[in-house]
Amino acid sequence: MSTSTRIASVLTGLTLALGGAALTAPAAHADVTACINQVERELKGGEAPESVRAACYVALTGAHDACVSGLTASSVTNGTAVTACRLAPE
């Protein structure tokens, strides 16, 4: 295999790998959005503060208890916090 063919193969592989990562990123974002939207429904149209967004991002790591604690510290009811945090990692 010639050097130019190897370089082309490596670049193609990198492009496919990076493209695949970019395609999976919106799915993670949608999960965080579902968590935030659940909290915003409780706020009845109000926009979730940054502390809620941060807690929902924590839920993506699987830290359900930390997410619930973060949301309840932001004055979200426990029931809504549990539901919202459960939505994030799905």
Rank of each mutant, 00 (worst) to 15 (best):
A27S: 11
D31L: 13
H29A: 14
N37I: 01
A55I: 03
A84P: 01
A84V: 00
E90M: 12
A88C: 05
S51V: 10
V58Q: 06
C67W: 06
I7E: 02
S75D: 07
I7G: 00
R41F: 09
A22E: 03
L16R: 04
P49L: 09
L18S: 10
A54V: 14
V68N: 03
R41S: 11
C35Y: 13
G45E: 08
G19P: 07
L16M: 11
A21C: 13
S2E: 09
D31K: 15
S9F: 02
M1G: 13
T61G: 07
G46D: 03
A73F: 03
S51F: 09
V68P: 03
T15W: 11
G46A: 13
C85W: 09
A55H: 03
H29E: 15
T80L: 01
L14D: 05
S75C: 03
R86Q: 05
S75L: 11
A25C: 02
V10Y: 02
L43K: 10
T83C: 00
R53Q: 14
L87I: 00
S69L: 08
C35H: 13
P49K: 13
P49S: 07
C85P: 04
T33I: 10
A66H: 06
L11M: 14
T5D: 06
C85F: 08
L14R: 04
T61H: 02
M1N: 07
S75M: 09
A25I: 09
E50Y: 13
V68D: 00
R53K: 15
S74G: 02
A81K: 06
V76C: 00
L14C: 08
P49D: 07
G46P: 01
T83S: 06
T61I: 07
A88M: 09
V76G: 01
T83A: 09
G46L: 08
T15E: 09
A28L: 13
E42A: 08
V68T: 11
G70A: 08
T77Y: 11
S51L: 04
H64M: 03
A48M: 12
E47K: 15
A21R: 10
E50M: 10
A88D: 01
D65I: 08
T3F: 11
L18D: 05
T77I: 10
I7Y: 01
P26Q: 05
A28Q: 11
M1Y: 03
G62P: 04
C67I: 10
V32C: 05
S74A: 15
A48D: 06
C35S: 06
T5Q: 11
P26L: 03
L60K: 07
A25D: 07
N37P: 00
H64R: 14
S2W: 01
A88H: 10
V10A: 14
A84E: 03
E42G: 11
G79W: 01
G46E: 09
V58S: 09
D65H: 07
T15N: 04
D31S: 15
A48Y: 10
T15R: 01
G79I: 06
T72L: 05
E40K: 00
E90R: 15
C67A: 04
E47T: 12
I7R: 11
A66F: 05
A88P: 02
L87C: 00
T12G: 12
L16E: 10
P89E: 04
Q38F: 02
